[in-house]
Design a protein around this nucleic acid. Structure first.
Lengths: 148, 148
DNA sequence: CTCGGTGCAAATGCTTTGCAATGTC
DNA sequence: GACATTGCAAAGCATTTGCACCGAG
């Protein structure tokens, strides 16, 4: 049972919202789907540019917005000014542990946190969209380095 | 039993780290302690400027860093580019529910989330510093407005 | 008296915008 | 053909930096 692919999903989203189907949008989606882990807008733009693409930064930003909007991507800010993205489509929802020293990011799944988050939203009469848990600390390698 | 005040606390932090005791730093701390809820660097700078202060933006940013560092303030980014601050000193640790429509932010306390976060950090061999849970949704007023 | 801190203005870095040209519907 | 979308360059905005002066230790 194959889940229908992100290209179809994005096409439907664009149609539903009366956005146009442009080659740039799908070129960006294709490049995005090849990323593993986190990436930022400029990573993506430069990767495309180096691969010979003509897309502009403006279009990359515009499309990243739409991909985030429809849930294909998740957007995060790990205490920085730049936005980082990650593929959400077809991946299990997870949280992040970030090392304040080297910036390394690890993931973990905790359904209980998601459930509590949903409950908290309901209690405060908010509809629930999503919950983002960031845990900050120092990873074991950095602690070892610091001991010298 | 009165807890010793933030001015003493900040003084000790500065001494301990061999930073200088300057009037600007305490002028900023005083203004910060008068804030309720969330504020950003420019809020603070303008409030001080309007009150006749001579402090510069650079000093405000520098001091906000130090106040965050020593734990008097918490710094957040609610999916925006600007950083928001809130007094942490003497307040219970809490999480936030944010309305994606009007930007309203409400707080709630959930010790279980903090405990799970600490456990996750430990499991991944990170020392634990802090955990930030942001829950996004739409508040009841905005949902009502949208129905018209 | 030394060097960290300050104010100011200019620089930076990520993101958005204005505008004329283009291509989808 | 209308008008959303594009590419480009310029603007915007939060924050940082360079530098000359100042003042805490």
């Amino acid at each position: 049972m194959k889940q229908n692919d992100p290209v179809d999903f994005f096409t439907q989203y664009l149609r539903r919202n009366k956005f146009r189907i442009t080659p740039e949008r799908f070129e960006i989606l294709d490049t995005v789907m090849e990323c593993d882990g986190h990436f930022d807008a400029d990573d993506l733009f430069l990767r495309m540019k180096n691969a010979g693409s003509k897309v502009s930064r403006a279009t990359v930003y515009n499309t990243l917005d739409k991909l985030t909007d429809c849930g294909i991507l998740s957007r995060y800010r790990f205490g920085e000014r730049l936005a980082r993205y990650e593929i959400a489509y077809g991946n299990e929802h997870h949280h992040h542990v970030i090392c304040r020293s080297c910036g390394k990011i690890e993931e973990f799944v905790d359904k209980r946190v998601d459930r509590f988050a949903r409950d908290a939203a309901t209690t405060l009469h908010y509809s629930f969209q999503d919950a983002v848990l960031h845990i900050y600390g120092i990873c074991s390698e950095c602690r070892a380095d610091g001991e010298e």
